[in-house]
């Protein structure tokens, strides 16, 4: 299945990846070859087959509503690229 440049741009936007125009072309080609490859699945008759999201047949795993010690604020912020004494800092959310 061919993948158009506009499809690639839309997917890149959803995935928050920047692509240069050259990359858009390259990725379109690569994705197209992979998608063509996985299109083989269309050959398999799957009517009425229950999708298998998980290999295990286990269910209802829960924990009690009891507190477990977490991280200190220093630990929580320690890997952050930018933070102040209390919070993670990110560039403004709104356009300038």
């Amino acid at each position: 299945m061919p993948i158009t440049s506009s499809q690639v741009r839309k997917v890149a936007q959803l995935a928050r990846l920047e692509l240069t125009e050259d990359e858009v072309q390259l990725v379109s080609d690569q994705l197209a070859s992979i998608v063509t490859f996985v299109d083989q699945l269309g050959e398999v008759a799957t009517d009425g087959v229950e999708p298998m999201a998980h290999p295990l047949d286990i269910h209802t795993v829960v924990r009690p509503d009891t507190e477990v010690p977490g991280l200190s604020r220093e630990q929580a912020l320690s890997n952050s690229p930018n933070h102040n004494d209390e919070c993670f800092l990110v560039p403004p959310v709104m356009a300038r």
Partner: peptide, 10 residues
Amino acid sequence: AGKADSQIDL
């Protein structure tokens, strides 16, 4: 003005 960084509390 929306120029300063936003602060995130989790």
